[in-house]
């Protein structure tokens, strides 16, 4: 397991340095969460989450269901703004800018921090339109055909769909749909891509394809992925963040660190129990 992760620290990819303590160098952090508290109405769903997300790395959120990992993920691109009862307190800094403030337009945030959802949700439009739409509304000025092809290639979908770009995105298989959704997210040229359990509705082979794809994307994008599958976190991520529920049923961040460290030598007993309990 650990060797697998170590191997992946390929040269020339990033100037991040993994320090001895299993922490990432904080000077190349792209997203910083500080004291994040999330309420749904009177329900205190997530308490006091602080976290650094390193640039051009894959960060995995793991933990039991209902522990708030998706909720935290959705704060990062202000998707929780769409839930009327949700209230997000605390600081979310993206590239040095505080984004959890009414002054920041969530629309601007979401163009730079894209999202892929649990269930593949292509637009009921053609494959081409699915990719092009986000670029179009954000005023992309280049050659759209080229752009669509580039995104579909990046999402490892081009060869499968190049002859049927005019067909509906809904007609693809589940795994293809999810890669189409990734291509769609890439089309706005984001810095960060958030993935909320992207493979949970897919078969093992499609899941494998998505995981391989994430590794390729890592060179150019920062990726945050929520997964309920610990093997998946171990396979794909550089940093792993473990969430759990405290005694008041609030989601809390228990521990974060390099994936190697979390899966081999966690500091917290709860992390250890969760990891070994599942593997064991």
């Amino acid at each position: 397991m650990s060797t697998d992760t170590q191997e992946r620290t390929s040269p020339g990819r990033s100037n991040s340095v993994i320090k001895d303590g299993g922490e990432f160098d904080t000077s190349d952090t792209i997203i910083q969460l500080r004291d994040l508290n999330i309420h749904y109405g009177s329900f205190h769903a997530v308490a006091d989450v602080s976290l650094d997300v390193p640039r051009n790395r894959i960060t995995a959120f793991i933990g039991p269901s209902g522990c708030g990992k998706s909720t935290v993920l959705r704060c990062i691109n202000r998707m929780n703004d769409l839930v009327p009862s949700a209230r997000v307190d605390g600081s979310i800094v993206y590239s040095g800018v505080e984004i959890n403030t009414p002054k920041v337009d969530p629309v601007e945030v979401r163009r730079r921090i894209g999202m892929v959802f649990q269930k593949p949700n292509p637009f009921p439009k053609s494959i081409y339109e699915n990719v092009a739409w986000g670029a179009k509304i954000n005023g992309y000025r280049g050659d759209m055909d080229e752009h669509v092809e580039r995104c579909l290639r990046q999402a490892a979908l081009w060869d499968e769909v190049k002859d049927k770009l005019k067909e509906s995105g809904m007609a693809l298989s589940g795994g293809q749909q999810q890669r189409l959704c990734i291509a769609r997210a890439l089309a706005t040229e984001p810095d960060v891509i958030l993935l909320d359990e992207p493979a949970s509705a897919l078969d093992p082979i499609s899941t494998l394809k998505i995981e391989e794809l994430l590794r390729e994307l890592e060179a150019n994008y920062t990726i945050v992925i929520v997964t309920h599958n610990m093997q998946q976190a171990a396979r794909v991520s550089d940093q792993t963040v473990f969430y759990s529920l405290n005694e008041r049923r609030q989601g809390v961040l228990v521990e974060s660190g390099t994936t190697a460290k979390i899966f081999t030598n966690p500091d917290d007993q709860r992390t250890e129990d969760y990891i070994t309990g599942r593997f064991g």
């Binding site: 000077s27 640039r55 993206y94 590239s95 040095g96 002054k103 920041v104 337009d105 601007e108 730079r112």
Partner: peptide, 20 residues
């Protein structure tokens, strides 16, 4: 704290304007 990362250091890019 947040102040630890000046905008100029965050990837060497100009400061972001996200106000829409």
């Amino acid at each position: 704290t947040v102040r630890d990362i000046p905008a100029s250091e965050s990837g060497g890019r100009p400061p972001l304007d996200l106000s829409g």
